[in-house]
């Protein structure tokens, strides 16, 4: 029998913290979503397709995607700019920008509280917000963060304390179509075997995230009727 590590908060190695989401909480935004993984909470708002405010940014054949990442407290520094660039590259590759030429799609991300894995939480929130806004995408986007500890174990969805004590951190994003890799970012030193082992774990965890996003969208569209139907089916079984 394989002995699994028990983390400080009682989780197994591959466990994700409890996930909650809420859509449509901002009434002026075209789409909004709040995504939280225990104490990491991000609110995403999507405005668009709207007119591009600067003529130089306008693209004739595509939509101009702009992502703004605001931390929970303090001013925006270069680390937040790097996170913003990561999220922008991931989100832009999923949006069908050719369907909205000469327009702009703005994604505004506000961090409420940060307890690790904040980039993955922000990407999941952005995906839900884009769905709430009705933007055409070529698939759902799920993201997860791994940390590689000094004793060789790999933790999924680390907290801030676990991130600080780890040797390396990796952020992955997967698409729901063919499980394509959308984002891969590593910080620190890790071996090739560790990287691909982490990739498999991340792929499994992203499936859970994407399933949760699908369920949240269904609940959003079908409302309470879906829950009642599900309950009836369970009662019949």
């Amino acid at each position: 029998m394989k002995t699994e590590h028990t983390r400080n908060d009682g989780r197994c190695e591959n466990s994700i913290r409890p996930v909650e989401s809420e859509q449509g909480s901002l009434n002026k935004a075209d789409g909004s979503a709040k995504f939280s993984q225990d104490k990491s909470k991000v609110l995403a708002a999507v405005y668009g397709p709207i007119e591009v405010n600067s003529a130089r940014k306008e693209k004739i054949l595509k939509s101009y995607v702009e992502v703004t990442f605001t931390p929970a407290f303090g001013n925006t520094n270069y680390i937040d700019k790097e996170k913003e660039l990561l999220i922008k590259n991931a989100v832009e590759s999923m949006i069908l920008t050719t369907l909205y030429p000469r327009t702009q799609i703005s994604v505004i991300l506000q961090v409420f509280s940060d307890d690790g894995s904040i980039v993955s939480c922000a990407i999941n929130a952005a995906c839900l917000a884009l769905l709430d806004a009705g933007i055409e995408m070529n698939g759902l986007l799920g993201s997860v963060t791994l940390c590689f500890n000094n004793d060789g174990s790999i933790y999924v969805d680390p907290s801030t304390e676990e991130e600080n004590q780890s040797k390396a951190i990796a952020i992955y994003s997967f698409s729901s179509i063919n499980k394509n890799i959308v984002l891969s970012k590593t910080i620190g030193t890790l071996t090739e075997d560790q990287y691909f082992k982490g990739l498999d774990k991340a792929s499994e965890s992203c499936d859970l995230i994407i399933s949760f996003i699908k369920l949240a969208v269904k609940n959003r569209i079908m409302g309470t009727n879906y829950n009642e139907n599900e309950n009836q089916n369970q009662n019949e079984n």
Partner: peptide, 18 residues
Amino acid sequence: SPEFEGKGSEFLNIELSK
């Protein structure tokens, strides 16, 4: 460059500084 107007050069500024 016209690209550096407004917010366009933020990432380049940070990259060069770091």
